[in-house]
Simulated assay, not measured.
Amino acid sequence: MVLVQALSYTALAVVAGLVGGVIAVYSPPSPQMESNIQHFAAGVVTAAVTAELLPDVHGRAPQIVVLGFAIGVATMLGIHRLSKIIDKRDIGGQYASASGLLIIVGIDMTIDGVLIGVSFLDNPDTGVIIAAALAIEVLFLGVAGVVALPREMSMARKLAVPAVFGLLLASGVTVSVLALGGVTGAPIAVILAFGSAALLYLVTEELLVKAGKVPETPVSTTLFFVGFLAIFLLDMLH
């Protein structure tokens, strides 16, 4: 059953998020280490898009691809705008400094879940690669979400954040598989194109931009290509 298979691989990302949360609670990474992780995650996600998603949408009708990409870019720009509004209005009371990030990451987790589910519906092999790639992203987001929380917050509440991220990811997978099971053609192509644009936005406007706040080092640059090569080889061997 596609849903069981999709959720079993999504569990990797859920566990990765929890591991990231535990790391952030007990041993918060240095800015340089965060930059290294971001470079590696950017390479992984870029490889997943170029090796898996883009070939799947390449043969579709151009108007379908353009529509999917346009919706993806517009959605990500809207999410970015929403985060600015939340930060500006101090929504979240005593957790205002973290609320914008947590809400945006929650939305991103749901979108990622939908993309994993649709990828499994379209091609299970693609779904496996996308789930593995996004597990690296979720590891970083688990760290970032916990680090953003107030220090005085209890450990249990901090770890609840990556747990909720995992729940949203699994929910996105479940809803997409149940709602789109048996659907083929244009709707699937639009979602895959949407996902490609969303992930490319994540790499260029989030991961690499934030990583760039720390001076580049040969190690961080190399890790981008290590991440890319790891997923590319996984795709070749799968």
Rank of each mutant, 00 (worst) to 15 (best):
G182T: 12
M109T: 04
V65I: 15
A156C: 00
D235P: 01
G172Q: 05
V214M: 02
R151T: 13
S196R: 03
V114E: 07
K84Q: 14
V45E: 07
F120W: 02
Q94R: 14
I79A: 14
L141S: 11
L54N: 04
Q32L: 14
A24C: 00
A193P: 05
G117C: 06
L82D: 03
L229R: 00
A70E: 06
T217S: 15
G172P: 06
T46W: 03
L18D: 03
Y9T: 07
A13V: 10
S35Y: 02
Q63F: 09
G145D: 13
H238N: 13
H80I: 01
K158M: 03
A133E: 05
A186W: 09
S30V: 05
G113R: 05
L139F: 15
G21R: 07
I91Y: 14
G68H: 08
I231P: 07
L168S: 09
P28C: 02
F232Y: 15
G78H: 02
Q63T: 12
Y26E: 12
I64A: 10
T204P: 00
A133W: 03
I188R: 01
S196T: 10
A51I: 10
G212V: 00
L77A: 15
S83K: 15
Y9E: 04
E205C: 02
F140T: 10
H80T: 11
V147R: 15
I129S: 06
P55V: 02
T217E: 12
P150H: 13
A133T: 03
A96N: 12
V183C: 08
T221F: 09
V25N: 09
V49R: 01
V65W: 05
T10R: 00
D90T: 04
L207W: 10
A96P: 09
I37Y: 07
V15P: 09
A160D: 03
F194C: 03
V4K: 14
G20H: 09
D235F: 09
S97G: 13
F224L: 13
T222V: 12
V105Y: 06
L77S: 10
E206Y: 12
H80E: 13
S30A: 12
R157F: 09
V66N: 01
I64N: 04
